[in-house]
Amino acid sequence: MGEALQQQWTSIHDPTTCTRKGLCPVKKVGGQDSPTPSYSLYFEQHGTGPIKVVFIMGLNVSCNAWAHQVKHFGRLPQYSILVFDNRGVGNSDTPRGPYSTSGMAEDVIVLLDFLGWTEKRSLHLVGLSLGGMIAQGALRTSIPHNVDVITLRIELSYRIPERFISLTLAATTAGGFPLCNIPPDAGMIELKSSCRVQFIRDPEKRVPYVVEMCFNASWLDATAKNDAKGRTNREVQTALYNERAALTRVQKPLGAISQMWAGFTHHVQAERLAQISKTIPKVVILTGDEDHLIRPANSAYLKKHMAEAEYIVWKDTGHVVNMQHVERFNALLEGVFQEGQARMEGRI
């Protein structure tokens, strides 16, 4: 990729660890009455190591939100890290909606094929919030009956659980339209704020709403650890969000609403969850006990139907676990990757 093309996209991630970035074309084929146009997904690969990790971000957030993970794993020689913008956000295109998590999972598979990440038992998958819902779709194993040829091809593309060594589902849900996808009572204010936020263009006015939605109040009000300025977590996170906002293309309302629809209509049946749990060598379900956007009980439901999975609840923790507890989250992932590899090789 030429230098001029590399500079077309601005990223918050370290350019010295970036080994590949660009646009992946996604070609869609819809029904005769409603063909879906082709579009592109923006992606970045950091590192060239043998341990490959795919990160899928959540609702209406660009891959810049994985900054702490890219910084950590991208600098370690044993890792290759893939982050990307889902359709409808960041540097990716915004095709017409509404979207579905199964359709967005198809995007992931197209991207993996485009990059040549197709070998069996070669990948670790990490999904946060809506990203975890998309990850469940990417691991889909069943094929519905009485489908036409076009639909069958789409469903077959989901049959890639054999590519994964581990799966981490963070702050997410199996869904169940419509009630299971509605936040708890404490989160309904955040939900209403989330809808309003999509139409606020001024980052200085938008960011405070986002911070309140993503983290629990007690943690936000506490003094941040290892902060030379002695700021609260709220002040630190506000500064970080402003930094990312300055480097992220403003999201179109169509993309925001379409992604929200995908989250509200998401549903993976219990039988499919059980199959995923049996198929992947290592599965971890992680939630914060003060998550006001996705009910912590939804993670308990995942565990109920994913018997082999490890179930973890972090105390005094909100929704965005990867940014609230950076070192802890990265250490957890390292352990998951190692245990998944050991299980795959039959060492444990």
Rank of each mutant, 00 (worst) to 15 (best):
S80Y: 02
L333C: 03
C18Q: 13
L191E: 06
Q6L: 10
Q338H: 11
D85L: 02
T151V: 13
L333V: 07
W314H: 05
L125N: 01
A274V: 07
R159H: 11
T94R: 05
K282C: 08
G47E: 05
L112W: 06
D221Y: 10
T248G: 05
V70N: 02
F73R: 02
H124V: 03
G230Q: 03
T172Y: 00
G318T: 06
L152Q: 10
V26H: 05
T151H: 09
Q78L: 14
L59W: 02
P50R: 14
H145P: 14
E155H: 13
T141E: 14
G58M: 02
L169T: 05
A342I: 05
A170D: 08
L128N: 00
R140M: 07
K252Y: 09
M57V: 14
C63D: 05
T94D: 09
P77M: 08
Y209D: 15
T101F: 03
L41R: 04
R343W: 06
I285G: 01
Y209I: 12
F84M: 10
T168I: 03
R159F: 06
M213Y: 03
T317A: 15
P296M: 04
S102C: 11
A274C: 10
I165R: 07
D14P: 04
V70G: 00
F43H: 03
V70D: 01
S122P: 04
G132M: 01
S299A: 14
K21D: 12
A138D: 02
T279Q: 12
A138F: 04
D221S: 14
M1Y: 07
F199Y: 11
E339G: 01
Q6I: 12
R20F: 00
L23E: 14
G131A: 00
I150R: 11
G22T: 09
E271H: 15
D93A: 12
G346K: 00
C63A: 13
V313N: 10
P161G: 08
I200Q: 04
S299W: 00
V284T: 10
G31E: 08
P98D: 00
T118P: 02
A262H: 08
